[in-house]
């Protein structure tokens, strides 16, 4: 019954991690070059929206695609224990994202009050910013726990 109602996400092969890294490394310079090209042809008049606004969609796209490829690709040695760690990383990632999104405006308002400024709703980077935070945390948390588990078990080898 669970299998009938739950969408089964198949992880990508391990090789896709490599593509994720390359997109992360080369994505931003390529997007910057595209924006420069658009500006030089007059399609974009003000490039500050790319360079100054971190939440610009163009900037986030290569980062999110790269991070998603890292998160949704299999490990070199993927088995049920690795999948268990991956599941835990996703659950804790969603949990901390909810907490962060709820607390960020409160924290920002407190800082604004202490500084004697007007309280305004802070910009948390929109949907893409939240997605980036989730993917970034999930990947780091998963890799850290996997490394720690494997290291502990390597030393215990019998």
């Amino acid at each position: 019954m669970i299998n009938e109602t739950t969408f089964q996400v198949q992880l990508l092969p391990y090789a896709y991690k490599k593509y994720g890294f390359w997109i992360l490394i080369l994505g931003l310079p390529i997007v910057a070059a595209i924006v420069y090209l658009f500006k030089s042809t007059g399609m974009i008049t003000d490039s500050r929206s790319f360079f100054d606004e971190w939440n610009d969609t163009l900037v986030y796209y290569p980062i999110i695609i790269g991070m998603a490829l890292l998160v949704f690709s299999k490990e070199k040695q993927e088995d049920e224990m690795v999948q268990n760690l991956r599941y835990k990383a996703f659950v804790s990632g969603v949990f901390f994202l909810v907490i962060a999104l709820l607390l960020l405006p409160v924290f920002s308002s407190m800082v604004a009050l202490l500084e004697g400024n007007r309280i305004e709703m802070p910009d948390v980077g929109g949907m893409l910013g939240a997605l980036f935070m989730l993917l970034f945390y999930t990947y780091l948390s998963f890799k850290y726990n996997l490394h720690r588990t494997r290291r502990a078990l390597e030393t215990d080898e019998e």
Binding site: D79, R150, L153, E158
Partner: peptide, 12 residues
């Protein structure tokens, strides 16, 4: 069809 670390983790 699992890794040696998984067997080690189960035994411990």
């Amino acid at each position: 069809g699992v890794t040696r670390q998984t067997i080690n983790a189960i035994e411990k």
